[in-house]
């Protein structure tokens, strides 16, 4: 039985990837109707959530074009506004970390603060004065002193000195104006254990910071995701005779755990192709030549969104959908068909 590759498959050969572009557009297949309609899309489109927690999520989008899937990914990385420290006013810094480096480190700390309440801070306008609508004020001051109660003979600086390490949890939020309503729980770093600086007795850091809205395109610190990416669902097709016996266990070992199982007949069967990492190991072995076909489903996207902690991952994705929608509406205003 000859193997025919389904149309929505990306082919995985040992040395190259084939059929990467989608073909389901009008006119590609003679005599077939591939025109786009909302009904067809509704029928085909599926969302499946694999898991979702505070920081991570994995979910599937099935039945969309790569261009749409990629748009969501790109927007998540670079266009969703978040709050980050932008201006650092240093009163005193006698630590060994230089002012610029310290400011850079502070900027990269993800903040747990809902950006929705905030307005844009107009950076380009020199006359623009910060208000409670667009600026959060944070403060950090730490002074290192010798710990008189340090246990005898210890060499651990954390024991020997007070405030030897300055962490993100030491940042203090100072609510301005209406901000007490919007942030009743205050604003904190998403991860309190981020090390900002190390101090030694006599050294001191005293500074205040202004956080404003920004997008990842401008600086990576404004990106709400640690990473947002997708992969296509892998497929494994055993073709021809079933693989049995010793070959079967070798076949099994060519894939990550749980991808291939051996059934009661001693045949290798694909149990869960989703778990495959597409290492193409099976294609290296001549005994499997012509007996297996690897591929990926072109319209099945497995998203993985890792949040930095500022916004929950599901919110990030929904925001990206909203943003894309907004962009489309802007485009529609121009009446492009005319």
């Amino acid at each position: 039985m000859a193997y025919t590759k389904p149309r929505n498959r990306v082919g995985i050969e040992h040395d190259r990837v084939t059929d990467v572009s989608s073909t389901d557009f009008p006119g590609y297949y003679p005599g077939e109707d591939h025109s786009w309609s909302i009904e067809k899309f509704k029928n085909h489109f599926k969302v499946h959530i694999e898991y979702l927690n505070e920081l991570n999520s994995e979910f599937d989008l099935i039945g969309v074009d790569p261009s749409i899937a990629n748009a969501f990914r790109r927007i998540m990385i670079s266009e969703i506004p978040t709050l980050a420290i932008e201006y650092v006013y240093i009163e005193n810094n006698t630590s060994i970390i230089q002012d610029e480096v310290l400011a850079h480190r502070l900027g990269l700390i993800p903040l747990k603060a809902n950006p929705d309440y905030m307005h844009w801070f107009k950076k380009d306008d020199p006359e623009f004065e910060p208000t409670d609508y667009d600026t959060l004020v944070l403060h950090l001051s730490a002074k290192c002193t010798v710990n008189p109660n340090a246990p005898e003979g210890t060499t651990d600086p954390k024991m020997l000195y007070n405030n030897a390490h300055v962490y993100a949890r030491d940042i203090v939020y100072e609510p301005q104006g209406h901000q007490t309503e919007w942030y009743p729980d205050g604003v904190t770093a998403a991860n309190p254990d981020i090390l900002i600086a190390k101090l030694r007795p006599g050294q001191e850091i005293d500074l205040s910071m202004h956080c404003i809205l920004g997008i990842g395109q401008d600086h990576a610190k404004f990106s709400p995701v640690a990473t947002a990416s997708y992969r296509l669902l892998p497929t494994i097709d055993i073709i021809g005779e079933p693989i049995t016996g010793e070959l079967a266990s070798k076949f099994k070992s060519c894939f990550p755990k749980g991808v291939v199982a051996i059934n009661s007949k001693g045949e290798a069967v694909v149990k869960d192709a989703r778990k495959d990492t597409v290492s193409r190991e099976v294609l290296r072995h001549p005994e499997f030549e012509g007996r297996v076909k690897l591929g990926r489903q072109r319209d099945h996207f497995i998203y993985c969104v890792e949040s930095t902690g500022a916004i929950p991952p599901d919110q990030i994705f929904l925001k990206s959908v909203q943003l894309l929608k907004k962009k489309c509406e802007i485009l529609r205003k121009f009446n492009l068909s005319a």
């Binding site: 990306v10 990837v17 990629n70 748009a71 990550p256």
Partner: peptide, 25 residues
């Protein structure tokens, strides 16, 4: 291989611009 990668160090990448898979590893 143990960690689920190709023995050669070549990975399957996706283009960040088009969103499609790259044709080469």
């Amino acid at each position: 291989i143990e960690k689920g990668y190709s023995y050669s160090g070549k990975d399957m990448l996706t283009s960040g611009i088009s969103g499609e898979c790259l044709q080469a590893y």
